[in-house]
Design a protein around this nucleic acid. Structure first.
Lengths: 147, 147
DNA sequence: ATGAATGCAAACCTTTTGCAACTAA
DNA sequence: TTAGTTGCAAAAGGTTTGCATTCAT
C-alpha cells in the first residue's frame, strides 16, 4: 500500500498533476475498503469520517486512480460502476446476480487461459481482460426478497 | 420465427395480456435485426419505417419479450442495455471493448463447463448464466479513433 | 503568479413511472 | 364494458460538466 501510494504520487508528478488533500484522502479510503464500492458509498464513507470532498471530485479522482492502474472500474450489479483496488498477483473475477445485483468473487485459473485465447482470436488485448458471469443467486432463486 | 411468434402469442394469452399492433411491430423489428440493439436504436428504426410507437412502449415491451424468453437483455458496452433475440440451440457470449463499447460474439464450449461449475460453487443458477469478457479491442489499442 | 483542482448545481443519458386517453377482448 | 395498453411528459438514478473560486506549485 505504501508502494501503491508512491506509484500514485509518481503518476501525478509525471503528468504534472497536483497532489491534493482530496486525492490522498480518496486514495486512503479506497485502500481502507476491501469490498467493491460504488462512488456514492465512497463519498458517504468519507463524509462520515468528517472529510470534506464533493461528489464531483470523487468521480473525477476515481477515474484518475483507474488511469493510474491502481483501481478497477466495472459495471456490475444493476446500474452502477463498482470500484476496487487492484490486488497485485491474485486476479479474481465477478459473479453478479442479474436480479438483485449481488456480487461474488471467484478465482479460476482454468478460465484465464481460455479467455486469453478468445481475446487473441478476436483481436482483443489478452492481458487486460476481465470476466463477468451473470446469473441468478440462491436467494433470488428461492424467491426471497432479502437479497 | 413463426414458432417464436406463436410462442409470444401464447405467452400473452396465458397471462391475459393483449395482442397489440405495437407489440407485434416490436417483435417483428427485433427479429428483423441480427445485431445487438439498444432500445433507442430499435425505436428509431421503427420510426424510420413509419411505425407509430413510443419510447415507453418500446422499453415496456422489450422487457416483456425478455420475460417471454425470446430476448436476452444485457448490460454491454458502456451505459446501455443491449437486446438480441435468442437463437435456439447455439449459445454465444460477448466480448466488449472497455473503451469504445464494440461488441463481438464468441462461442466457447470449454468455458461453458467451467462457468457452470463456478455458478454451482457459489450458489448461482448454473443454467441461466451469461458471460462477458471486457478488454481493449484492436482499434483502440492502435489508438485509432475509428472504433 | 498561474494553471490545475475543487465544489456546486445544472446538464446528461438511459430507463422508469404516473396518469389520462384509448382500445382489445 | 372494462381492464390492460398506450403516449406523453415528468421523474429517477447514476455520472459528467461548466464555471467561478480556491489552491498547489
Amino acid at each position: 500500500m505504501h508502494q501503491e501510494r508512491q506509484q500514485f504520487l509518481k503518476f501525478l508528478r509525471d503528468r504534472g498533476q497536483r497532489v491534493t488533500a482530496e486525492r490522498l484522502a480518496l486514495f486512503d479510503e479506497v485502500y481502507a475498503q476491501h469490498q467493491h464500492l460504488d462512488a456514492e458509498a465512497l463519498l458517504s464513507a468519507m463524509k462520515e469520517k468528517g472529510l470534506k470532498i464533493s461528489r464531483a471530485t470523487v468521480y473525477r479522482n476515481l477515474d484518475l486512480l483507474v488511469d493510474c492502474g491502481l483501481v478497477r472500474k466495472q459495471r456490475l450489479g444493476r446500474n452502477r460502476f463498482l470500484y476496487e483496488h487492484v490486488h497485485p498477483g491474485q486476479r479474481h473475477d465477478h459473479l453478479v446476480c442479474r436480479r438483485c445485483g449481488k456480487v461474488a468473487e471467484f478465482v479460476s485459473g482454468g478460465i484465464g487461459a481460455l479467455q486469453a485465447e478468445i481475446c487473441r482470436a478476436h483481436g482483443f488485448d489478452p492481458t487486460e481482460f476481465s470476466l463477468q458471469i451473470s446469473s441468478i443467486c440462491r436467494d433470488c432463486r428461492a424467491g426471497r426478497r432479502s437479497c
